[in-house]
Computed example of a mutant assay.
Amino acid sequence: MSGFYINWSGELVAFFAFAVIMIVGAVLMLTLTKVVHMVVSLAAVFLGLGGMFVVLEAEFVAFVQVLIYAGAITILMIFGIMMTHHQAVQHEPARPVHEIVSAVASILLFGILFYAIRTTEFEPSAPPLQAGVDNAMEIGKQLYTQHVIPFELVSVLLTVAFIGAIVIAKKEAE
């Protein structure tokens, strides 16, 4: 194959390791039948995504990813699963034709995306970060100077959603 050379570095190996963790977790989440196992697989995807952010030198986003999604959301889902009643659901019979068409479509989509990524010339959109720059400080500066109104609107929206969830839960309890 001409023009296909990979320079194996630590970042590339870490990228592939986290990619494998995320893909295996996503496939397991879709194929497992027990809901708790599905949530654990989803947590693996979240942790792999946090690792990807570390590889991209976005430590703050990685920290938030692991803390919020892999921690809080996963625990919230497990509590929700354990506190609700589940009834047996009948499974549909396997459809081998649909599975074959889905597999072929997935492989074609992978091939198209792989070709598009390998042939596209990406231009750098921002100057690279210098060593020693604190990402969290830069995010904080941007958040509280240029983006303070959207930040406050999101906090109000989350508060309203939280109150709405409490009202809905209280009506179901009655």
Rank of each mutant, 00 (worst) to 15 (best):
F60K: 03
A43K: 12
A26F: 02
V54F: 14
V39R: 02
I73H: 05
R95M: 09
F60E: 04
F79P: 03
A17G: 07
L42C: 09
I78W: 06
D134V: 10
G80Y: 01
V89E: 12
L129K: 15
S106M: 08
L67V: 09
L28E: 05
M77P: 03
Y69R: 04
K34N: 09
H91M: 07
G51A: 01
A105I: 02
I100F: 15
M38W: 01
H85L: 11
I68D: 08
L129I: 11
E57D: 13
F79Q: 06
F53E: 14
A88D: 14
P127S: 13
V97H: 08
A105W: 01
V104F: 09
E121Y: 14
V61Q: 04
G50V: 01
A131T: 11
M77G: 01
A19E: 12
T74K: 00
I100Q: 15
V55F: 09
V27W: 12
S106A: 14
V64M: 09
V35G: 06
L42Q: 11
L76G: 14
T33Q: 08
Q90N: 12
V66F: 06
V55A: 12
S106R: 06
E59W: 11
F60G: 03
M77D: 00
V66G: 02
R95F: 03
I78F: 02
L32C: 04
P124F: 05
V66L: 14
V66T: 06
E59S: 13
L30A: 14
Q87F: 11
